[in-house]
């Protein structure tokens, strides 16, 4: 009983592009933190290039959403899918921007020795990535419970950020020469914390898309 083929095709395209964009957002976070951990400048450049693709996808998806609203008058479940996509792409685009910020830190630190081994930052990145993956899985399979579970990981990321903040402040107090690098690492930590927030936002939109309920998972 597939009717409204035109609208269905647009919805399929939106979902396909959104998953592509989501996959890139997962990968870009991983790459950004790896570039920092390994001081890999080529990888930092790759991050900047990937972000351009994410930006372009945001525009494409936005255009399809607008076209669907303008020409197909979507309602109910269809309307929720489109309005969710409209919001989700903004969060995904911001995730790309945060990854760029991290890649730029890699470039600015320019291989200067690290004041502490990077363990918690990659852990944050891993958690944020996992949140994003869960959210996208929930999006595809319309799994409300899975989307809701994303909030728990966000709390874990937040406490890691607090812990990193304290450590870095301590390092700055101990040795003023640490301040430059510590401030940059603090920025990275803050970026990853924001990425997790965006993932939680996306999960909220997925819950809305599935059930029409508005939750706060942040």
């Amino acid at each position: 009983m597939v009717e409204r083929q035109q609208l269905q095709k647009m919805l399929d395209t939106i979902q396909e592009d959104l998953l592509k964009m989501g996959g890139l957002a997962e990968a870009i976070i991983h790459k950004a933190v790896e570039s920092l951990k390994n001081y890999d400048l080529d990888m930092a450049e790759e991050v900047l290039a990937m972000d351009k693709i994410i930006d372009a996808l945001e525009l494409t998806i936005e255009e399809t959403c607008i076209l669907a609203i303008a020409t197909q008058q979507p309602l109910a479940n269809d309307l929720r899918k489109i309005s969710a996509a409209f919001k989700i792409i903004t969060d995904l685009e911001r995730i790309g921007d945060h990854a760029c910020g991290i890649a730029k830190v890699t470039k600015k630190l320019n291989k200067e020795p690290l004041i502490k081994p990077l363990i918690d930052l990659p852990r944050m990145a891993y958690l944020a990535q996992k949140m994003l993956k869960k959210t996208l899985d929930a999006y595809v399979s319309a799994d409300e419970e899975l989307a809701k579970s994303v909030g728990d990981a966000d709390n874990e990321v937040d406490s890691l950020h607090d812990q990193i903040f304290n450590e870095l402040v301590l390092l700055m107090l101990q040795e003023p020469r640490n301040i430059n690098q510590a401030a940059k690492l603090l920025f990275v930590s803050r970026s990853l914390e924001r990425v997790a927030d965006h993932a939680a936002n996306i999960a909220e939109r997925v819950v809305y898309m599935i059930s029409g309920k508005r939750l706060n998972l942040n």
Binding site: R4, L7, P74, A76, N77, L79, R80, G212
Partner: peptide
């Protein structure tokens, strides 16, 4: 009704998936 109808039949009619 237009954003989140309760009944599947309403949903199908509203979204034009009425078979």
């Amino acid at each position: 009704i237009f954003t989140n109808p309760k009944d599947k039949r309403t949903e199908d009619y509203i979204t034009g998936r009425f078979g």
